[in-house]
Design a protein around this nucleic acid. Structure first.
Lengths: 136, 136
DNA sequence: TATTACCCTACTAATTTAATAGAGTTTTCA
DNA sequence: TGAAAACTCTATTAAATTAGTAGGGTAATA
C-alpha cells in the first residue's frame, strides 16, 4: 500500500511542476488545492527540501519551488525518498539490502526469485517516468 | 512491504510443490523446515485451504497437500489471497476498487497515472509465474 | 518592525501485523 | 473403541507504523 506521505508528496510535486512560473508557492495553497492536511504536508515538503528536490523561501511572498525542471526528476528518486525501498523484501533491495533471518539460502528461495522480478518491473516503470510524464 | 503472512504462505506452497508425492504434509514439518511459527503457519494454511489452493486430511497421517499441480497455480491468485490488492492505491485496483476521497478527478491525477503502470507491471510478473516457476 | 511563512519537537489515536495461548473437534489407526 | 494425532476456532496481545494534531519558535521580507 502506498503511504499517504508518498501520495501527498507526489501530488505536491506535480502541483509545483504545473506552475506557469518558478515563483514560490505557499504550503496553504497546495494543501487547499490538493485536499491535504496543512501540517502534514508541511513535514512532507520539508523532507523534500532536505533531499534536494525543493527549495524554499521564507517571509512574505515565500513558499516552496522546484529546484530542477520536471523532466529531470526521476520517479525512482522520489519514490525512494518518500516511500523508502522499492523492493517488497529487504533481501532483493538494491539500496536497503538485508538478509532474511529465516532464510538459509537466497538462491534457492522462491519468494526471493519472485520478488526480484517484481522489483525489476517496478524499477522499470519508475525509471521511465519523470515528474513531467505524470502531470496531466 | 511484503507481509510475513504472504512470505510464509508462498514458502509453504513451494514446500508442498517440492514434495515427491501427493501425501499430506504436517504443519509441523513445514514450520520446522521453513523456520515459521507453527501456530501462525496454521492460520495461513487454513486460509489457503478455504480459498481452494490446499486440501487437508485430519487424524494420524494427515496434513496439507496441493489440490492442483504447481503449473496450474498462478501467482496472481496466490498474491490476491495472501497479500490482498496488487495495486498500491485502491483507485487503480481491479478487484478492490475504491475512489479516493481527496481526489476530484482520477483522470488528471498524477498518482493514479503512475500507480496504474506499477500495477500493470506487477500483474505482468504474477501472470507469467506459476508455483512451478518459482520453485528452485 | 510587524507580518508572513517556514521550521521543529513532541504527542497521540488508530490501524495493522505477527504472533501466542488455549480449548475444542474430527479422524484414523491400532 | 479409544486414544493419539492433527486440524479448527476464538480471543488476546505486543510491537510497529501511519497519519495526523498541537503549539511554539525562528527567520526573512515588504
Amino acid at each position: 500500500m502506498l503511504s499517504k506521505k508518498t501520495k501527498y508528496g507526489l501530488k505536491a510535486l506535480a502541483y509545483l511542476a504545473g506552475q506557469p512560473d518558478k515563483k514560490p508557492v505557499q504550503i496553504s495553497e497546495i494543501a487547499e488545492n490538493e485536499n491535504i492536511s496543512q501540517k502534514f504536508l508541511e513535514s512532507i515538503l520539508l523532507s523534500l527540501r532536505k533531499t534536494g528536490f525543493l527549495g524554499s523561501k521564507k517571509g512574505k511572498g515565500g513558499g516552496y519551488y522546484l529546484l530542477r525542471s520536471p523532466e529531470e526528476i526521476s520517479m525512482t528518486d522520489v519514490m525512494r525518498v518518500l516511500e523508502g525501498p522499492i523492493a517488497m523484501v529487504p533481501c532483493v533491495s538494491l539500496n536497503f539490502y538485508e538478509t532474511c533471518d529465516d532464510c538459509p539460502d537466497e538462491h534457492t528461495c522462491s519468494v526471493h526469485k519472485l520478488m526480484l522480478q517484481v522489483r525489476d518491473s517496478a524499477l522499470d516503470v519508475y525509471r521511465n517516468n519523470t515528474l513531467k510524464d505524470i502531470i496531466s
